[in-house]
Every structure is written in C-alpha cells, then in structure tokens.
Measured scan of single mutants.
Amino acid sequence: MIINNLKLIREKKKISQSELAALLEVSRQTINGIEKNKYNPSLQLALKIAYYLNTPLEDIFQWQ
C-alpha cells in the first residue's frame, strides 16, 4: 500500500487542489482522489507532483 503526504505538503505550501490540478493538467477530482488514497498516481504524474511541489518524491509517497 502506498501512503501519501500530498495533502499535508500541498497545504503547507499554501497551494489549493485546483491550483495544483491546473499546474499538472489534471482535474481537481484527480488530486482529491490521490489525497484520499482512492487510487495511486502513475509514475509520470507522481514525478510531476514532486517537481511542482519542489519536494522529493519519497517525501510525498511512501510504501507501507
């Protein structure tokens, strides 16, 4: 199972779901689904999230 800290990191950086979704060219619902662990992002999307949040990938997504 993958645990993610996306919501915590996104809120710490004061970025809304809508703003992050626009940067990543995905829907706000996609961001919401990832934050709620409804599904895991593709590797490409995970890397883009880490890039736009300027945060190491392993700080956002962790195996458990």
Rank of each mutant, 00 (worst) to 15 (best):
I31E: 01
D59S: 09
P41F: 04
E25Q: 13
F61N: 00
A21D: 02
K12W: 13
E35G: 00
Q64K: 10
I60K: 00
I9D: 02
K14N: 13
M1G: 05
S18F: 12
W63I: 05
I49W: 01
L20Q: 00
K48P: 01
F61L: 03
P41Y: 02
I49P: 00
I49E: 00
M1L: 15
T55Y: 06
M1P: 13
I49C: 06
L57H: 04
N37K: 12
N32L: 10
E25R: 10
F61M: 03
K36D: 15
I2Q: 09
Q64C: 09
T30M: 12
K13I: 07
I60E: 01
Q44E: 15
W63P: 05
W63E: 04
K13A: 14
K12T: 13
E58I: 09
N54D: 14
K36Q: 15
E19D: 14
A22H: 13
E58Q: 11
W63R: 04
P41W: 03
N5D: 04
Y39K: 10
E58A: 11
K14S: 12
T55L: 06
K13V: 07
Q44C: 11
S18G: 15
E11D: 12
K7A: 13
I60P: 01
L43T: 10
M1Q: 05
E19M: 10
Y39W: 07
K7G: 07
E35Y: 02
N4C: 04
N32H: 11
A21Y: 02
N40M: 07
L23P: 03
N4K: 02
L47S: 14
E35Q: 02
Y39A: 10
I2E: 09
L53P: 00
S16H: 06
N5I: 02
Q29D: 15
R28Y: 10
K38P: 02
Q64H: 11
Q17A: 09
I9A: 07
I3K: 14
Q62R: 12
E58R: 10
P41K: 01
Q29I: 11
L6E: 01
K48T: 05
I3A: 08
N54R: 11
T55A: 08
K7S: 09
I3Q: 10
S42L: 03
N37I: 03
N40R: 09
I31G: 00
Q64T: 14
Y39G: 06
N40T: 14
W63L: 06
R10T: 02
Q64W: 05
A46T: 05
R28L: 15
S27V: 03
L8H: 14
L6G: 00
S16Q: 07
S27N: 12
S16F: 04
P41V: 09
Y51P: 01
K48Y: 04
R28S: 14
L20M: 06
S27H: 08
I31D: 00
T55D: 03
W63F: 10
Q17M: 14
Y51D: 14
F61I: 03
E25K: 11
E19G: 10
S42R: 07
M1E: 05
T30V: 14
I34L: 07
S42M: 04
K7P: 05
N4V: 03
K13Y: 07
I60C: 04
F61T: 01
L20D: 00
E35A: 01
L45N: 03
R10Y: 02
P56V: 04
L23Q: 13
I31M: 04
A21Q: 03
L45E: 05
G33N: 14
Y52W: 12
L23R: 10
L47C: 11
N4D: 02
K38Y: 11
I15K: 06
I60A: 02
L24F: 03
A50M: 03
K7W: 07
K36C: 13
I9G: 02
Q44G: 13
Y51L: 12
I34F: 04
Q64F: 06
L53C: 04
L6Q: 03
F61D: 00
I15E: 01
L43S: 09
E11R: 10
E58L: 11
A50R: 03
E35H: 02
Q62V: 11
S16E: 06
F61A: 01
S42V: 04
N32A: 09
N32Q: 06
E25S: 13
S16A: 08
Q29F: 13
L8V: 15
N54L: 05
A46K: 07
K38L: 14
K14D: 13
E35T: 02
Y39S: 07
I49N: 00
P41Q: 01
E25C: 10
I34A: 01
K7V: 08
N5Q: 06
N54Y: 06
L57Q: 04
I15P: 00
L23T: 08
K12F: 09
